[in-house]
Design a binder for these strands. Structure first.
Lengths: 134, 134
DNA sequence: GTTCGTGCAAACGGTTTGCAACAAT
DNA sequence: ATTGTTGCAAACCGTTTGCACGAAC
């Protein structure tokens, strides 16, 4: 994914592609990591030293509102962002705190729609443990 | 669950049952709600007006450390506490933010142990939607 | 009198907001 | 000129911490 694609992607979602937004998008919309806002900020700052925290936070929230990102409250104390917009599960490494995507098909949950009294809109499995060093 | 039981429970877990801790425990260890620390604080304050936030926070953390509570980062921005210590799933009402326990047997997840590269220690299904008014 | 628990207030970390300066059109 | 975006700093909210007072043994 290159710069031009990010610009097009932002436009497609009704977001004016300012230089700062593109810089944030280039990192956060094309990563398998699950960066926190501050991680995104310090990362983007390398290439764009004058960008402010507020701009990064505002941009990330804008991306979430416009459907380019999900924000996750899986770890304690801070939100992380996930550009993978199709459904999937999450694995959290308890020793490192790192979050990994698990493909939707790698697990299957039965009886979700049979929950009486609850109208299910979405669900995911959250798995915790340790990633094998492989 | 009455006061005496809480005292016994705390003792059983090596926690000195001070009046404040018992007051916190009476609420938070015997609820199906999933109170945040501040909710617990204001709730306990009704019966114990001079209790401080710090005491409530310290007490809750102590309970977690001693295995009487789980702390959950399911909702954005704050932790909530859950005295249900056996495994179960969670349903989050997206309009109210309320969290409900789902019995472990109400759902079943297949293939969790087949995740290659991951050593699974625990997992749960997190379901979001709307609770039916019923 | 030593130990432990408490209350207060200050500090903290992550996030948000108000606002003035600045593009861009 | 209007509209939208940025940077800065202050505010904010949930949580933790330092410390001196107080209760219990």
């Amino acid at each position: 994914m290159v710069k031009k694609d990010i610009v097009a992607l932002l436009r497609l979602h009704g977001i004016h592609p300012s230089a700062q937004r593109v810089a944030v998008g280039e990192y956060v919309l094309d990563t398998e990591e699950h960066p926190s806002a501050d991680e995104a900020w310090s990362r983007v700052k390398k290439k764009f030293p004058r960008i402010s925290r507020a701009t990064v936070y505002n941009t990330l929230n804008l991306f979430v509102k416009k459907g380019l990102l999900h924000s996750l409250a899986l770890a304690e104390g801070k939100l992380v962002f996930d550009p993978k917009m199709d459904r999937h599960h999450h694995f959290i490494d308890e020793s490192t705190g790192k979050i990994y995507d698990l493909p939707w098909e790698s697990l299957s949950v039965s009886d979700v729609d049979g929950l009486h009294g609850f109208e299910v809109r979405q669900y995911q499995v959250v798995v915790r443990g340790k990633k094998k060093s492989t």
